[in-house]
Design a protein around this nucleic acid. Structure first.
Lengths: 141, 141
DNA sequence: CTCAATGCAAAGTATTTGCAACCGA
DNA sequence: TCGGTTGCAAATACTTTGCATTGAG
């Protein structure tokens, strides 16, 4: 699996799926459409599930979970682990930092290039860097 | 709460607790001893619970959870959220980055100063930076 | 003595899994 | 048709909570 490759997301849900080798089923297409058309976002499985229902899509919560995992493995989404026991999925898969607002548990992208890693660490023998996750936690003053 | 203040941890579990305003009960002292004497570590509630049992301490898992939360709120530990649904507690509370080994789900401190933030982002109006968490995810080559 | 801390079990939340039915290629 | 997907419900994993009991100051 290629992890350092950052596919520029096609805005066509169909292509988005088939290029990643995923069969475009009705549910996957519906979820992909919500994700692609929603722009850059950070959402939880529950949130996407709610959107899907609202949009009239016929999906189960379990399928949303499975689908998000499939998308992530295919490199279409990126998991963001910030909070204990809740995974956010980021529709941007390129390297970027996040703001986490502790008061309302939301995530936004940190303004482009605002955080810069000056120096990467010496990586232990036998390992490659899969990603560098930077989270700036913000607290209301 | 002061976050930029880095209390050098007392190596005396008793002081460690009382200074933080926590009553040194038998269970807390036992857990604090394990934490302080273990050096810099990253452990889960389950792991600490196992150690406590092995050390002959009489604690329940729920108390381990409650105690870890109490320690964290008191600034004695730092939560590290890296994996979905599993919280690690770091006995180092100063700013530092982490290596996360994806193959065996372990955490280590990244070598000192090996990752440096070149530039901090412009923080949204009304917010302060609580912390900047950096995780370098490593995958076996 | 008194009230915070504890133990236990039960509840809660987030996510995964097993398996029969289904549907896209 | 055929095997990958889905839905559902049950299972799992982790953590928190309610409440009676205990113990530190």
């Amino acid at each position: 699996m290629e992890y350092d490759q950052r596919p520029s997301l096609s805005r066509k849900p169909g292509l988005w799926l088939t290029r990643a080798g995923l069969r475009p089923t009705r549910q996957r297409t519906a979820l992909a459409t919500l994700l692609v058309e929603g722009g850059d976002r950070h959402l939880t499985a529950e949130a996407l599930f709610a959107e899907a229902l609202e949009a009239g899509a016929d999906v189960s919560l379990a399928t949303v979970y499975n689908t998000l995992n499939a998308f992530t493995n295919a490199g279409l989404l990126r998991e963001v682990n910030i909070e204990a026991g809740r995974v956010y999925y980021d529709t941007r898969v390129d390297d970027h930092s996040h703001f986490y607002f502790e008061d309302d548990c939301t995530i936004t992208d940190a303004p482009g290039g605002s955080v810069r890693i000056a120096e990467l660490p010496d990586v232990p023998e036998g390992y490659d860097i899969a990603s560098v996750d930077v989270v700036v936690r913000l607290r209301r003053r």
